[in-house]
């Protein structure tokens, strides 16, 4: 290892690598917006960040944002407008990728942020969808970020707030969803990707310091692996320099 990094920083760099230059990306707060900033400073200087409330930005805002509507996210924006104008880019098929998280994700990449338990008598009522279903349905691809715990990576979610591959196979296409679906699940232990005609998520790479047994043991379905499981590439010096430039206070360092 050539330089120090935290697990969160590794996840940010892995997320940043999902953004290609010139792409329009639904960013979201916290980890994804930091990843967007790293991508802009490294390999994707022409990426565009979109925020559901009605904001499009080139440069990410300076400093820590608590919500996408905070003043610093609007100062110097490419566009401050309405929700329909920004999310209409999605509906019109003009968005390349979106980042979303959730309480639960299942083996087909379906995400739940609505109800744990029964809809009519929920054990936990989660805050809800926001714009995540719209992003999951329409963006060309989806990047899912979630902590790797057995109760979070589950066999089947109680409620599909945001669709992945639904029941697997070509179910997503049959349901009329234009976007290709989730391309990757980035966790604090590993990276999973859909594999084969079923589109079930398989173990693609393991973060340094973690083992296959540990990852499988913390997954709520019988997690299978790609023919060759790699180690998640470590952040480069350039990527870490960019991250430190954005995260001056070291929020993600521990």
């Amino acid at each position: 290892m050539t330089h120090e990094y935290s697990t969160q920083e590794l996840m940010i760099i892995a997320a940043a690598r999902q953004i290609a230059d010139g792409e329009r990306i639904f960013v979201g707060m916290r980890l994804p917006i930091t990843a967007y900033g790293v991508a802009r400073l490294t390999h994707a200087p022409n990426a565009v960040g979109l925020f559901e409330s009605g904001v499009a930005r080139y440069e990410p805002a300076d400093g820590m944002l608590y919500t996408m509507c905070d003043g610093p996210n609007q100062l110097g924006a490419a566009w401050t407008t309405g929700l329909i104008q920004i999310m209409g880019l999605l509906s019109g098929g003009r968005v390349h990728a979106g980042f979303i998280g959730g309480a639960e994700v299942d083996r087909f990449g379906n995400i739940n942020t609505s109800y744990i338990g029964d809809i009519d008598d929920p054990k936990v009522k989660l805050p809800g969808s926001g714009g995540a279903p719209d992003i999951a349905a329409m963006a060309e691809r989806l990047v899912i970020i979630i902590n790797h715990q057995k109760h979070r990576l589950v066999e089947k979610v109680d409620f599909i707030t945001s669709p992945g591959y639904l029941d697997g196979g070509d179910a997503r296409k049959k349901a009329g969803l234009p976007g290709a679906g989730p391309a990757v699940i980035i966790t604090d232990r590993a990276i999973l990707k859909p594999h084969g005609p079923s589109n079930e998520f398989h173990l693609a790479s393991i973060h340094p310091g973690h083992t296959v047994e540990e990852v499988v043991g913390n997954t709520g379905w019988d997690l299978k692996s790609f023919p060759e499981v790699e180690q998640t590439p470590e952040p480069t010096k350039e990527e870490m320099d960019a991250l430190h430039h954005i995260d001056k206070e070291g929020f993600w360092r521990s």
Partner: peptide, 8 residues
């Protein structure tokens, strides 16, 4: 189209 596939 944006809500297709969701249990909403």
């Amino acid at each position: 189209k944006t809500i297709l596939g969701s249990d909403i």
